[in-house]
Structures are given as C-alpha cells and as structure tokens.
Amino acid sequence: MATRLKQDDPRELALQERIKAGFKLEDETEMTPRYRDVLVNTMHIAADLEVMTLPDYSPAIKNSPNLEAKIAVASACQDELGHAQVMYRLLEDFGYDTHQFLFEREAAEFRTFQLLEFPHRDYIETVVSMCIGDRAGYITTTDLEDNCSFGPYARSLRKVNFEETFHVGHGERWTRFFWNQSPASRQRVQEAFDFYFPLAAAWFGVPDSMKKRTDQLAYKIRGASNDEMRQKWLTQVVPFCEELGIRIPARFDEETGKFRLDYEPPVYLDEEKRVWHFDRRITWEEQFAIWKRGSVFKVPAIRRLQLEVWGKELW
C-alpha cells in the first residue's frame, strides 16, 4: 500500500516548489501520492458532471418547440458526452475502468452537483442553464486549462472549453430571445432564474473562509479559489441580468467594489416546490448532507443510463 504523504512532507513541498516555478507534469511517475489524489479527485468529479448532463439536459430534446431547438440541445449534449469521454479516458491512465465506473457503480456514488440533478423539463430551463450553469462550468474548466499543472488535462480541456463557449453563447442568446418573446415566456425565464441561480452560484462550493488550505491550489491543479471563480461568474451574470431586467438575488456592492449575493448561503431549498427560502439559513452540515444525498431525481436519472428501456415503454 502506498504511503500517504502529508502535504508538508519534504517531497510534497519539493513538488509544490517545482510546480510554482512552472513545472508541468506529464506522467503518473512524476507525481507524489498526494498530488495524484488531488488530481484524480478533481478529474473524477469533472467527468461525473459531464456524464450527468445526459439525463439532465436530454429530456429537453423531447420537449423542444421546434427543430432548431431540438438540434441545439442534442448537439450540446453530444458535446458534453464527448467531454465525459475525454475526461474518463484520462482517468483510465490512473487505473479507472470507465465501463465499470459508468455502468456498474452505485448511482448514489456518482459525484454530481445539485445544479445538474434536476432534469430539464423544457427548452427554457435548458437555455437558462446554459446561460448561467454552463457558464459556471466554463469558468472552472477554463481555470483548469489555464493553470492545471498536469499537462494532459490542461491540453484536453482546450476542446472542452472551445465547445463550452458555444453553450454559454447559445444560452445567453436564447435567454434574451425568450425574455422578449412574450409575457408568458418572460415569466418562465424569470422562474428558471429563480430556481437555477442559487444552484449555479453554489457550483463553486463553500466560501474560501471555510477552507484552511487547499491542495488544489497548492499543487496548482487549479489557479483560482472558489470565491474568485464565483466572483468572476457574478461579474458576468449580474450585468447580463440587470441589462434585461431579470431579477436575481445578487448585486454590485459599491462599498467593497465587488459583486455579492443578497443572501448568505447555505439557505433552505424546498426541492419539491422548487422554491428557495433565503431567510431560512441552514447549517453547512445540513447543506453537505443535502449535497451528498442528491436530489430525488439523481439516482433514477443515473440508473436510466445503466438500464435499457424498450418496446411499449418507449411509445
């Protein structure tokens, strides 16, 4: 069994120093056990998130109002599953068996984020998700591409990020369109923001103040902290919403010169009614438990990929 090295073990510190000086790792043989753990963990979560887009986004293909919309959702899903292929492929070099991992793993074990655990019911939810959710994903993956000290991962994200710009652009364009299409569609866009905005804001994880030291930053797997990435996301989302008049619980704070949320996470989400209670704070322990449990849709959504459904069940 490999000996676990503490982060301040001299060998770990030496690697951190080299990385700080710009060293890129290309192969597992160059890694310390701790580096390997942090890297694999990061890629594992990213890969699971890409897979989750299949059950999450693809229902909207069925409910899309026309060919244009069907094509847009199907093609975005195609991209996402391609991203999953790229990431699982990298994990295979670290001993992962994609097939087993995908088809034989307990559905509850998939490491997904709450944002992707509510299958889209219609095209509006998809374009709003692309506008703010894919944007959150894009901010994390561009940070990885720009900074990740594991060369193969950084390189493989070039394709991923190239495609994500289209998802975000599509989301923005069609959010704008449906905001202006009719009072009814505007109402639906607003409702989608009401539900998805806090989920997307939570994409970046806990506030920096809760983390003592972050291995991801020490080993330069990532370049920016949770709060820095969330700030970057708000910098894009808040002006976009303000320009259109979409109401979101966030604003620019003149005093600090930064964007901020109007509520202090974590807050209670009534998952069934899809309503956030911003005045009802929950503890972080409760929040972690909710994230760990997943939405009621999570397990059935993943199970669907492990099952086959035929005949009368289809139509």
């Binding site: 899309s64 109002p65 026309n66 219609d122 095209y123 509006i124 569609s185």
Partner: peptide, 8 residues
C-alpha cells in the same frame, strides 16, 4: 413538437 407557445 411540444410547448408550442415557445415556437419561433
């Protein structure tokens, strides 16, 4: 096609 109120 579903959701015809959104068609464009």
């Amino acid at each position: 096609f579903k959701d015809q109120e959104l068609a464009f």
